[in-house]
């Protein structure tokens, strides 16, 4: 039932969008045509829906139908709107075991490249609203430290500003630098920690490993806390490719 509702919802959302963009009777027709498929009549459907939404039900269980993340979980990140190249790199990393999270490794182990690409493109195209900014649970001093590192880095310790690569609004940059909004502080801390300890890696040169290696545990807490308090920008789309000149080389982001 839930799946059917989700499916109907996604179709009607698409239809609404189309109607907004280009008023046409087609959207209305589409909605009307779907009415007989209400859950009570689900048995009448002879085939599984041939859609990405239906195929990605295993992902939706933790990441939400649109990849918006799950409100009550600290560890299932938002996927929506991140650049497809970034998402694809992560899917491949989980498939070959470079990134370690058993449920993800297990789900992706035997999936083909084009499918992983389609998954990445699906979530990259989603634009569910960002969650409300978090109410910080750390002191103002910690928040100030976080803001300082995020916006300016710490050149004396070789730490570049996060905004230098992830964008002034932290929406990321095409093709493979992720946005940092809508993520729980616990998730950001866990990822930076994993980079510091070498349990998360990316293609060499692994720029994030270099950056994270310069951060202390206190820095990580501060950065994660401040990022989670940021409001949604007007335009949540990643920056176009090449907008920013990166301060250091990244194997996963072609320059």
């Amino acid at each position: 039932m839930r799946r059917m509702k989700t499916f109907l919802r996604s179709i009607s959302v698409q239809a609404r969008r189309r109607r907004l963009a280009r008023p046409t009777p087609f959207a209305a027709l589409l909605l009307w045509a779907l009415v007989p498929l209400r859950p009570a009549h689900a048995q009448a459907i002879e085939r599984a829906p041939d859609t990405m939404e239906a195929r990605l039900q295993p992902c939706a269980a933790c990441h939400g139908a649109q990849g918006q993340g799950v409100a009550n979980s600290d560890s299932f990140p938002r996927l929506a709107g991140k650049p497809a190249g970034y998402l694809y790199n992560q899917l491949v990393a989980f498939r070959i075991g470079r990134r370690h999270y058993a449920p993800m490794n297990y789900l992706l182990e035997f999936q083909l490249d084009p499918y992983l690409r389609a998954m990445a493109e699906f979530y990259a195209a989603q634009r569910p609203p960002l969650p409300a900014p978090a109410v910080p649970i750390v002191s103002n001093d910690v928040l100030r430290l976080g803001q300082s590192i995020v916006m300016h880095g710490d050149p004396s310790r070789g730490i570049p500003a996060c905004s230098g690569c992830h964008g002034p609004s932290f929406t990321g940059m095409e093709p493979a630098i992720p946005g940092l909004l809508g993520l729980k502080p616990s998730y950001i801390s866990a990822q930076l920690g994993a980079w510091r300890y070498g349990t998360r890696t990316a293609t060499a040169p692994d720029c994030m490993q270099i950056v994270a290696g310069h951060l202390t545990e206190g820095d990580v807490t501060a950065v994660a806390a401040w990022l989670s308090t940021l409001p949604s920008p007007e335009n949540a789309a990643p920056l176009p490719r090449g907008t920013l000149a990166l301060p250091l080389a990244c194997g996963s982001e072609p320059s």
């Binding site: 039900q57 295993p58 269980a61 789900l107 083909l112 389609a118």
Partner: peptide, 24 residues
């Protein structure tokens, strides 16, 4: 508990899958 995807094959390159329920 874990759900799962059947393997990607030439005959079924983009499988539908079973969601995990361990967390629910």
């Amino acid at each position: 508990l874990n759900g799962g995807y059947p393997p990607g094959t030439a005959g079924n390159p983009m499988p539908h899958g079973m969601p995990p329920y361990a967390q629910i």
